Simulated assay, not measured.
Amino acid sequence: MRFSVFTASTPDWTPEEAVRHLAGQGWDGIEWRVVDQDDAPEPGFWKGNRATWALTGLEAALPELAALTRGAGLEYSGIGGYARSFEHDDVARLLAATATLGAGRVRVTMPMLSTGRYPDLFDATRKDLEWATGLAARHGVTILVELHHETIVSSASAAMRLVDGLDPRHIGVIHDLGNLVIEGHEDHRAAFELLGPYLQHVHVKNVAWLPADTAPDGTVTWVHDWAPLRTGQAHVGRYLAALVAHGYDGWVTVEDFSTALPLEQRTADNLEYLRSLL
């Protein structure tokens, strides 16, 4: 396995700082966040993230992005795009940029459940992915569909329904350990076997469920929050062991949104921990 970091989880660093720190710590690769984001007074994971490349003007930034990445001796585990499946122009731009960089794969996001009736969303997205997979093939790259809570593909079973029959050389699934703690968990071994050739990428983070409120009748309301890799609900060691037993030997990308440790210490500790588990 090779380990990388998704820069959504490194908001304090500029791209120059991100590649310097990650290469210095011994990471194999980087997964760049690409999106037009809102500004914020302080850097945050989703707003004001300094390690994010804007989609607007991306083409002009590609030489700098490539020089930083390769100059640090890092590989691309993929491109963390945020273009939605129905935003065809943006999807096309990300596919072309991925091909130009030689990054291989790019994430395309799936519709949120709150945006329509599930059958309608599913049917429309299937058509979008048929179109996008064809374009990905022409570019020689692969689209990645992430298992993500509150979307139409929270589980491996749902993702398999969506991508089944499409060319696995040009579309695959991101199995995301942390997201599955929130919604969509299935036995990992069974999920890997179900996805078969569509299991093409892995994201690792962790989540804890915490009691938030207790009603007068004793009913407890629980909420989820990001947790360090060691302390969340998911057992990362067993997860990696299941991947190894399945024969997966691809990228494992960390997107740790916990804040118990300072960023530089957090990324270094995560790499040490993951390697110790193998």
Results as ranks from 00 to 15, higher is better:
Ala245His: 10
His88Met: 06
Gly232Met: 04
Arg275Thr: 09
Val202Phe: 01
Leu166Asp: 12
Lys127Ser: 14
Glu75Phe: 10
Asp38Val: 07
Asp213Asn: 14
Arg93Pro: 02
Arg2Ala: 04
Val252Thr: 09
Arg138Leu: 13
Asp187Lys: 03
His185Ala: 15
Thr267Leu: 01
Thr100Cys: 10
Arg105Asp: 09
Trp251Tyr: 12
His185Trp: 14
Leu94Ala: 06
His21Asn: 11
Val220Trp: 03
Leu121Asp: 11
Ala268His: 07
Glu17His: 04
Leu199Arg: 13
Ala136Cys: 02
Thr100Ser: 12
Pro216Gly: 10
Gly78Arg: 05
Gly80Gln: 11
Pro63Ala: 11
Glu16Ala: 15
Val220Thr: 15
Gln233Met: 13
Phe3Cys: 00
Asp167Lys: 00
His201Met: 06
Ala8Gln: 11
Asp225Ala: 15
Asp28Tyr: 10
Thr219Glu: 12
Glu255Val: 07
Ser154Asn: 11
Leu62Ile: 01
Ala92Asp: 06
Ala268Asp: 05
Arg126Lys: 14
Phe86Asp: 11
Ala212Pro: 03
Ala99Ser: 14
Leu271Val: 11
Thr253Leu: 09
Arg189Ser: 12
Thr125Gln: 04
Asp187Trp: 04
Thr142Glu: 15
Thr125Met: 05
Thr14Leu: 07
Leu278Val: 14
Gly196Val: 12
Met160Cys: 06
Thr231Arg: 14
Arg275Gln: 14
Ile174Glu: 03
Arg238Ile: 02
Ala83Lys: 02
Asn270Val: 13
Gly134His: 05
Ala8Gly: 06
Gln233Asp: 15
Glu183Arg: 00
Val207Cys: 10
Leu274Pro: 08
Leu278Glu: 13
Tyr118Ala: 05
Leu240Trp: 06
Thr109Gln: 06
Pro11Gln: 02
Tyr239Gly: 06
Gly218Ala: 07
Ala132Met: 01
Val236Arg: 02
Arg117Val: 06
Glu87Met: 01
Thr109Cys: 08
Pro119Gln: 07
Trp131Cys: 02
Thr219Gln: 10
Leu65Val: 15
Phe3Asn: 00
Thr214Ile: 14
Val153Thr: 15
Arg93Thr: 11
Trp32Gln: 01
Gly178Phe: 00
Thr100Asp: 13
Ala242Thr: 08
Met110Val: 09
Ala92Gln: 02
Ser77Phe: 09
Met110Pro: 09
Ala190Leu: 03
Leu271Asn: 13
Pro63Cys: 11
Asn49Ile: 12
Tyr82Lys: 05
Gly140Arg: 03
Val181Ile: 09
Lys205Gly: 02
Asn270Gly: 10
Arg20Asn: 12
Asp89Ile: 06
Val145His: 06
Ala60Pro: 01
Asn270Phe: 13
Trp27His: 11
Arg33Tyr: 12
Arg138Ala: 10
Leu199Tyr: 14
Ala245Phe: 07
Trp226Met: 12
Asp249Asn: 09
Trp27Pro: 05
Ala215Leu: 09
Asp89Arg: 15
Val207Ala: 08
Leu135Val: 15
Glu31Pro: 07
Ile171Cys: 04
Ser114Gln: 09
Ala66Lys: 00
Phe45Ala: 04
Asp89Ala: 15
Gly57Thr: 10
Thr52His: 05
